[in-house]
Nucleic acid binder design. Structure first.
Lengths: 200, 200
DNA sequence: TTGTTTAATGAACAAATTGTTGTATAATTT
DNA sequence: AAATTATACAACAATTTGTTCATTAAACAA
């Protein structure tokens, strides 16, 4: 993948920034191509030179930002092996993820406040299927676990995203380590117990 | 709330059905008022007599269907009391919820396959805040649990919806009781353990 | 630096969508 | 049977969409 023309990269960057700026102001579904072009200070026809529609731009925006933050930390999985879930390693990974989220907080805040975070979740789940699943295939061989592997992935991804969304919008910002603990607790012991309810 | 004019009820019903029909065929964001009017066999101007925009119609559709299914079973909470989470009662409630989902399966399938199930989740969470929370307020008094009560509600709601979505689209349909067990497991012991992973 | 390549512009286009308005008609309600 | 009111229909301006074309300007490669 050779470097693109400087003008193309400039245009795409401007459109990415324009998208986030507009998503701050209004819900994604109300954003028009014309507004994007105005905000990015390019001609409307230029938009169609690079993107099929606004969802295409959104996907590209998500892909770029995710690849540089969360996904870096889950390319190789070390916390699941042979049916054992290693809590400590998982907590380390989640802490790293949370720190990378904080480092690009603007993107994540905008995504979560808008009405299109489903696309973000979908991208993460798709990444999990393609990259994470093959690595932990052996852990799903026995019993009913194979049947449930898809829903498990979905539940863990959505739990992490939901906690992050809540974390970023809370009144007082807690430390990534604290939030990682919370996520680990929910994933390994369930929300009810982690929250302090006595089970039974 | 007295009964509305027969013509109004007929029009609203036609629009509700038209919405679901169109959502079966294309993503929610691509549906236009004109298409809705055609499908419902009413004039386009009539739509604006009853709804502000398409989201208004969607909200009404969700409200009606939810009130007649899931929400009936969580008006009074019996499975959380004084900080104790009663597994057995929770499982009964979830089973009832799942059966009511099956009884209106068409609605839920369409909602989950479309790109607007966030609205459905939002409605459930809002209902939880208004109706469920006040009933279990006492359980959140001690420790850090009060701080986490909002995220707990979100996690439980999204877990239930996610499992239902997976359940309705799986190849072979499992019994509501089986799925209720799965949900109870995830909520009280976490996805990792429930799926069969050994924790540590 | 020069010549070549190509991205961006601006204008124009038809088609579709939106939201509103007025009057006439038809159905429902009382 | 009379009064009420929801709906249909047509028309409207404003906006959006996706595409095309010739022109201009910038980036690239030698």
């Amino acid at each position: 993948m050779e470097k693109q023309d400087l003008r193309i990269r400039r245009t795409k960057k401007a459109l990415n920034e324009a998208l986030l700026t507009l998503m701050e102001q209004k819900s994604f579904s109300r954003i028009t191509i014309q507004e994007l072009a105005n905000e990015a200070m390019i001609n409307r026809a230029t938009f169609y030179l690079h993107y099929y529609d606004i969802y295409d731009l959104l996907d590209a925006c998500i892909r770029d930002n995710m690849n540089h933050t969360m996904l870096k930390h889950i390319k190789t999985i070390r916390h699941i092996e042979d049916g054992v879930f290693y809590t400590e390693i998982f907590q380390e990974v989640v802490t790293k993820i949370l720190k990378s989220v904080e480092s690009n907080e603007y993107f994540f805040r905008v995504m979560f406040q808008s009405d299109c975070d489903k696309q973000l979740e979908a991208y993460l789940i798709q990444f999990g299927h393609a990259t994470v699943m093959p690595q932990i295939e052996r852990s799903f061989q026995k019993g009913t676990s194979k049947k449930y592997k898809n829903i498990t992935l979905q539940l863990i991804v959505s739990t992490i995203l939901r906690v992050i969304s809540w974390w970023l919008t809370a009144e007082e910002r807690e430390a990534p380590e604290k939030i990682a603990e919370l996520i680990v607790g929910v994933v390994t012991q369930g929300p009810a117990y982690t929250i302090g309810l006595e089970i039974d």
